[in-house]
Design a binder for these strands. Structure first.
Lengths: 232, 232
DNA sequence: CACGCTCAATCAAGTGATTGATGGAGGGCG
DNA sequence: CGCCCTCCATCAATCACTTGATTGAGCGTG
């Protein structure tokens, strides 16, 4: 987006802006935009309100800054994943694992994301930052589904875009559920796999008997994937 | 919930409160809670701010009132549907149609619902009203899926609760999508049906040939259902 | 009917508190 | 000195909510 040799500006001002964005993020996660006050952000950073306004001229730009920091985190995380070496099914499971990982040690991210999602309805600054991120995520899943359909591991009549909405919608819904838990999320992932997989795979010899047992629970931890197919 | 002979209290005060709740709802849909001002609500009703505070003592109770009015609408609508005469598959499609119907001529409802969903995180007053409503919806879908699994129309290994999260999550996600449209929603519904239906039904003679065509588009308008099974 | 009283409903005009934002005066450091 | 950076003090605007007064409909009593 900016100058290429600017991987980490690390100037003191840029650091302050990152601190401010981080403080704003945690406060948004706690109280939402409705209760977001510049004074509170400044207090959490440990600076004066005027100092905050020196670094970030207005509240609106501050919110834009939060949206950008969230997008940067999201994209950096998704680009650091191994992609081309995995089969479609493995990549889908990897998507589940990514989500689960964020769910545990990055819970704040989802709350802020939900809050930004609502705000994107009215704020074009937020919308311009958030929407491409969602579109990127959506397209990535849709592409995985399309490849899996074409190679026979997913259903032949699978609509990749609709399927991507199933996957993302179900993952997010499992987290918004009142009784949200990791077991619920795992159950949803297993159900997604059963819903998308080809019931009669052309090459694999799993046979139709596997579809009789209710909820087989494939137990896809990250471990059984990391060393299954490394590189040809 | 209240006295049985109180279907429509229709006292002038209760009417005013309903007017206020309606105005607040539309304003929340437009600007969210962040931009909700008691002055604006009063102006939309056509009364003074003091008069509004005469009817609704505080802003918090006003928001609770909005939540209640939303829940009442939701439950009234869901209880007015024919339930016991339909097969599980028909009831699922009826759920799609309900959602689609609200999507077109009740769009405000979903915006307010999303807004309340976020607020329920921190406001116990809203939470106590919204959560049971969602639980009711969720349980209703899960029960339909369980019945459909048991009678063979849905997959044998279908997990009803996880499946309900698939259905609700996908429907909601299709509406939050940046390029949301009715065609997208219909595609998601079709994909949900393909995902949940039994690929080898025991009694029906549809045959496996129907599963080869990509995206068959069953075209489930409301019309083919409304007069198929009326009442014995 | 007429008079006096009550009370729900409404309003104009505030009240104090809070908010985002500013201006100018320092402070530390090269 | 000059340049970032920080803070104190303050502003104008806005907020939810209150105050005190007015209206008019109902209602009993003589």
């Amino acid at each position: 987006m900016q100058h290429p040799p600017k991987d980490k500006p690390s100037s003191p001002t840029a650091d302050r802006r990152r601190e401010i964005a981080a403080a704003a993020r945690s406060l948004i996660a706690e109280r939402g935009f409705e209760g977001l006050r510049t004074r509170d952000i400044a207090a959490r950073v440990g600076i004066n309100v005027a100092t905050l306004h020196y670094h970030v001229p207005t509240k609106e730009t501050l919110i834009g800054l939060v949206a950008q920091s969230l997008r940067d985190d999201f994209i950096a995380q998704h680009e650091s994943r191994p992609r081309d070496t995995l089969s479609p099914r493995e990549r889908l499971i990897s998507e589940f694992d990514d989500f689960r990982e964020n769910l545990t040690d990055n819970a704040e991210l989802f709350k802020v994301m939900a809050e930004l999602q609502e705000r994107a309805r009215r704020d074009p600054v937020v919308s311009d930052v958030i929407r491409p991120m969602q579109a990127f995520w959506f397209a990535q899943v849709a592409e995985v589904l399309a490849r899996g359909r074409d190679d026979g591991s997913f259903r032949h009549d699978l609509d990749p875009e609709a399927g991507a909405l199933l996957v993302l919608g179900a993952m997010i819904a499992s987290q918004r559920h009142p009784n949200a838990s990791m077991a619920l999320f795992d159950g949803v992932c297993a159900e997604l796999l059963r819903s998308l997989e080809n019931p009669s795979p052309p090459d694999a010899g799993r046979g139709p008997a596997a579809r009789q047992a209710p909820a087989p629970k494939p137990s896809f931890g990250k471990s059984p994937l990391k060393n299954s197919t490394k590189v040809p």
